[in-house]
Write a protein that binds this DNA or RNA. Structure first.
Lengths: 344, 344
DNA sequence: CTGTTAGCGCATTCAG
DNA sequence: CTGAATGCGCTAACAG
């Protein structure tokens, strides 16, 4: 267990010079004779010296670590965002520690405590679907630790956020269904606690409104994103009379689950029911029929959020701006929503 | 930028007692009068005190951080493994920092340096497909930092490893193809640098041998897992005369990519070509036709590897054992490999 | 150019 | 039970 670690002192002793000189040589300080520097560097290399970031962090009060809290890692969305964020952080010499809340409020609170005691220099957060109290997140603000939200953002907090144009994208998705002749469009929506659910729902409602399609309460179901429940809702929706001729799902996993159920019921997609999802998750392009969906610039979301965060870290708090970056999500029309035969 | 942090000193001053008493109270040391302890705890809570792990780590020479190096985050495999590993680490009070090598040797080396300077207490590694030199990983061993491999393991190093029974699973996959009447079975294999590629290839070869099917060199292509190249190989394979009647792919992404190409060529799956993949990645169950594949206990791989690692951390080096845990992967028969008509 | 000193926040001796 | 002193590995300010 005793990790005997090579330190600056070892190098100093070996070379019979002072620790500070070694430190200077190692950190590229100008005031070092070039031969001394070379000797130090060579020996460090030879002895396999690795600087101990812990002590540096302790002194500089910077850990060069960014915390990322995500709700889940099951679908391709969050891992992809993390990839983008990580790349950007690495470029700037920052490390990333990742915690997943498992869509669970308590875990999210615990995660944020971990981040705090790990002395992260900043956090990227996408909230769990359960989160309705934001004290644990506001704590970062209070402590002067920059926080940036992405995707599942917190309306209550005045901090930078990275989202996609959910409303518009949802609007266009539903508009597309309308324009291909669909009239009874159901919407399997997300929980009201998430702003993205509300925005997508509003996009749906506004599209109906624009095309004078009466809104029918029966056709909208808000659910908690537990995929296993999709079956119940779809069976219910498909048993309505008249049956919906299209479905707009709050995200791709929901849409894909719905498709399986619908296919098993013997209904044809898109002839009987057209489907549109949201997210362009992995698999959406090769499910049969391929899923019409809204594609989000996933990695870019991560990169943008991280860039925003790193910007804050290097600026004074007084200069922080609570910008909300809205990235472009665009509709990808595939086979699950071909024109409705009856009307074309 | 000035993160004014609340320290033990602040609490000590406020309560007019010594720092050591505060420290003792906070760490649950027995020798503290219970009212003093209560006062400290209450004030700490009120002042929102968070212990600074950095300094503790510096003293104890333990960072309570585990590094995980994975090749990629695009498919569902590694994120899922990480989920399992993280959960296990969290239970034991450990944090996880994740780096992806991007299937790139140099990045992997850089990652391992980061881990080292972050003073991780241990590392979980799945190597990039390019990695052929293991010095950067052996360095952990030399420094007494426990290392556990999973999935993409290093044969040269005597350390714990977590894998699945690749050979047997591949054998059974190919056996299944043979038993359903296929005779010309192609194999799109992974690069020779990865042990899993070799094991799966050997499983393929042994299955052919057992059933006296002559091995044809034409039918095996090793490739570097760059999905965009699959098209070329499949077109080539399908142009052979006689055409292969089945394909065993080294992993699911490869199989899925192959299926798309084959379908576009106008061939029917499984009638003209049966397909079997490996991994049971996300999407394999709902691609059309659904993909016969080998399912791996993904999260369990992560959990097992982390358990092994944590075990080492708490033991003396002399007690470390280089066990190789082989988890059970099992064949899942779906529609991409139904029996060959000609023979049944 | 180089050495000396102080101290980051905390746990842990050693004395009371 | 409590306080004072030491030091983890390193950087930075201060003297040469």
């Amino acid at each position: 267990m005793k990790n005997h670690q090579i330190t600056i002192i070892d190098i100093a002793k070996e070379l019979n010079i002072s620790k500070s000189t070694v430190s200077r040589a190692l950190t590229g300080h100008p005031n070092v004779k070039s031969e001394t520097r070379k000797a130090v560097l060579d020996l460090a290399e030879k002895m396999d010296y690795q600087r101990n970031m812990l002590s540096i962090s302790l002194i500089t009060n910077k850990s060069y670590t960014i915390g990322i809290i995500v709700p889940e890692f099951m679908t391709s969305f969050f891992p992809q965002v993390v990839v983008g964020a990580q790349e950007e952080a690495a470029k700037a010499g920052y490390n990333v520690i990742i915690n997943q809340s498992n869509e669970n409020y308590k875990t999210e609170v615990a995660n944020s405590k971990v981040m705090l005691s790990s002395q992260v220099d900043g956090v990227l957060v996408s909230m769990s679907k359960e989160t309705r109290n934001y004290d644990h997140l506001k704590k970062f603000q209070r402590k002067g630790i920059p926080i940036v939200f992405f995707n599942r953002v917190c309306d209550e907090m005045m901090v930078p956020k990275v989202v996609v144009n959910d409303h518009d994208a949802a609007f266009r998705a539903v508009e597309h269904l309308i324009q291909t002749g669909h009239k009874r469009i159901a919407h399997l929506a997300g929980p009201d606690s998430l702003a993205i659910s509300r925005k997508r729902l509003n996009g749906y409602l506004d599209a109906l409104k624009k095309y004078d399609i009466p809104f029918s309460e029966d056709l909208v179901i808000q659910y908690d994103l537990t995929l296993s429940k999709v079956k119940i809702y779809i069976k219910h929706l498909m048993s309505l009379d008249p049956r919906p001729d299209a479905l707009f799902a709050v995200n791709d996993p929901t849409a894909i689950e719905a498709m399986q159920v619908i296919k098993k019921m013997g209904l044809r997609i898109p002839e009987d029911v057209a489907i549109v999802g949201f997210g362009d998750n992995y698999g959406s392009s090769f499910i049969e029929p391929s899923l019409t969906t809204v594609s989000q610039p996933v990695q870019e979301i991560g990169r943008t959020a991280m860039t925003l965060l790193l910007g804050m870290i290097n600026k004074d708090m007084s200069q922080w701006k609570a910008v909300t970056k809205s990235l472009e999500a665009k509709l990808i029309i595939r086979n699950s929503s071909k024109a409705n035969k009856k009307t074309l």
